[in-house]
């Protein structure tokens, strides 16, 4: 029981990074980032190379993961999404473009990283025992760093100037432009931060679960599940979705090892959406 709680907390905190990243991108440029799981995977591989292969400090790995994914995100926004969003007449266009970027990262990763499952040695070895459950220090590290990052992001969005600009953009693009917000740069920044969050989540979770080049789509689907549970484009909803999915997974896998857990999660999700199509905290149709 305690074990389920511990695992649920660690997963939830990490998933919160993923969900916040995809929510940020969704609310700022109104795009469902299909490549989110791929950015997670790229971040994980950065930590694998920097920390696992070149034996530099783990922190350096996280920094590289964040920077590389942020740059990928910013470039995607500038050269792919911004032009298409400006000229497109159908909402499907930008979404299919996002699918294209996901496939692009998937196949490039397969060539660059190979298809083996990779893992890294523990940053802090050892296990802590709490009330009958085991918490390896490694997982504690993931939990703490994730929570700190979530806190920093929430502070950034709430209290800094660029953060306010992002929220203004999410509310009303035209009004934000009229108020003197640099819409192009803020969109790029938002995409970069969202991508970096995915990269950081991957860089943290690689120390627990390892990574392979094909892991992207599964993570993207998890991100989608979280924002469907919580409500797309709502920060509180993203956090709630992360907690629900994290605990559903930890409870599910302790009772039913194997793919039944996800089958049940999917079925529960569809039943839930029948009752509440906009998610727990979402507004109807965003």
């Amino acid at each position: 029981m305690t074990q389920i709680l511990i695992d649920g907390c660690v997963l939830s905190a990490n998933y919160a990074l993923i969900a916040l990243g995809i929510t940020l991108i969704f609310s700022i440029i109104n795009l469902l980032n299909f490549a989110h799981g791929e950015l997670f995977m790229v971040g994980a591989f950065m930590v694998y190379y920097v920390y696992g292969v070149f034996h530099l400090p783990f922190v350096a790995g996280l920094v590289v993961a964040a920077l590389v994914t942020a740059v990928i995100g910013a470039l995607f926004e500038k050269f792919f999404f911004a032009p298409v969003m400006r000229s497109s007449t159908r909402e499907e266009n930008s979404m299919l473009l996002a699918v294209g970027t996901a496939l692009l990262l998937d196949s490039v990763a397969l060539f660059a990283f190979g298809h083996e499952q990779r893992g890294v040695p523990d940053v802090i070895p050892g296990v802590m025992q709490i009330a009958g459950g085991f918490l390896p220090y490694q997982r504690l590290l993931v939990l703490v760093v994730s929570l700190v990052l979530v806190g920093v992001l929430l502070w950034f969005v709430q209290y800094t100037r660029p953060g306010r600009a992002m929220r203004a953009l999410a509310q009303d693009r035209d009004a934000a432009r009229l108020m003197g917000v640099n819409v192009e740069r803020t969109s790029m920044l938002g995409f970069a931060i969202g991508a970096a969050l995915a990269g950081l989540a991957g860089g943290l979770l690689v120390t627990v679960q390892g990574i392979s080049a094909g892991a992207g789509p599964a993570i993207s689907i998890k991100a989608f599940i979280m924002i469907m549970i919580g409500g797309a484009g709502v920060v509180g909803g993203a956090l709630l979705g992360a907690v629900v999915l994290g605990f559903a997974e930890s409870i599910g896998y302790s009772l039913l090892p194997g793919s039944e857990t996800y089958l049940l999660i999917f079925v529960a999700l569809i039943l839930f959406l029948i009752i509440r199509p906009q998610g727990i905290m979402g507004h109807p149709w965003g």
Binding site: V84, S87, L96, G100, T101, L103, L104, D106, S107, F111
Partner: peptide, 17 residues
């Protein structure tokens, strides 16, 4: 194949939406 599909998708969206 997947790489080319991806590039094709992006190019089509950019130039022939």
């Amino acid at each position: 194949q997947v790489l080319l599909y991806a590039i094709l998708m992006i190019v089509v969206m950019l130039f022939l939406p």
